[in-house]
Amino acid sequence: MTIHKEGYKSIVITAIIFAVINLLSFYFISYSLPWLSWLIFVVTLGLLLFIISFFRVPNRQLTKGDNLVICPADGKVVVIEEVFDEEYFKDKRLQISVFMSPANVHQNRNPISGEVVYNQYHKGKYLVAWHPKSSTENERHSIVIRSAKGEILVKQIAGALAKRIINYLTVGQKVEQSAEYGFIKFGSRVDLLLPVGTKVNVQLNEVVKGGVTVLATL
């Protein structure tokens, strides 16, 4: 396991806060209220470990296949339904949505190999990520990857806590399936828009892993 580069600054800041709080606690509280000093240490250590864990990147055996749509994020499948896409396709698509809790790995991976033909950031609200309108009203970043099997739209969506979406791709870039394409900080959601009739390999509420789980077959 490694730590994602997007986490270095957050981890350093949290570590400094941890050190300052516990130094002050040691000098001013530990003598008269040792139990309180220990409580502060445990709580702040838990926060530090949580922040480190949030930016973890586990070692995995990644899944690949020309006709496979690989899950772009860790989390739970919260939507499998047909929707009308107003943004790019302008027709009906099959939407699969994965909700990422703060405890999940938040690295995002390419579901297919191909060429990036669309890349657009949208400002928006910060509704909870499982809200039905979060796909169209929240802050989000959409990309479309074109392969020999067709085009897939992948949408990074900010949640109530997530305030920063990172996307590394550019239009015209060639991408490899299951390779990293972005990161979302502190709770979020990823939507995929697939051709109607695509065979779905997962079920609602199924726990999935980015770069590993096969969401669908083209």
Rank of each mutant, 00 (worst) to 15 (best):
M1F: 09
T2H: 09
I3Q: 01
G7Y: 01
K9L: 14
I13G: 02
A19I: 12
I21A: 09
I21K: 00
L23C: 14
L24T: 11
F26A: 08
S30L: 05
S32N: 12
W35V: 10
L39K: 04
F41W: 10
G46F: 12
G46I: 07
L47C: 12
L49V: 15
I51S: 01
R56W: 00
R60W: 02
K64E: 14
D66T: 13
D66W: 01
N67Y: 11
V69S: 02
A73T: 05
A73F: 02
D74R: 04
K76S: 11
V77T: 03
V79T: 14
I80T: 05
E81R: 13
E82L: 04
V83E: 07
V83W: 03
D85M: 07
D85L: 12
F89W: 06
D91M: 13
R93D: 00
Q95M: 15
Q95D: 03
I96P: 01
I96Q: 06
M100A: 11
P102I: 10
A103V: 10
A103S: 13
A103I: 08
N104T: 06
N104D: 15
H106I: 00
P111Q: 11
Y118E: 11
Q120I: 09
Y126I: 12
L127I: 13
L127E: 11
P132E: 10
S134L: 10
R140V: 09
H141D: 13
I143K: 04
I143C: 06
V144N: 06
I145F: 12
S147R: 10
I152L: 09
I152K: 06
I157V: 15
G159K: 04
K163F: 08
I165M: 05
I166H: 06
N167C: 14
T170P: 00
V171K: 12
V171G: 06
Q177G: 12
A179S: 15
E180I: 14
Y181A: 01
F186N: 06
G187W: 02
S188I: 11
L193A: 04
P195R: 02
V196G: 08
G197N: 14
K199F: 10
K199Q: 14
V200Q: 03
V200S: 04
N201I: 04
V202I: 15
Q203I: 10
L204R: 11
E206Q: 15
V208T: 06
V212M: 09
V214G: 02
V214P: 08
L218P: 05
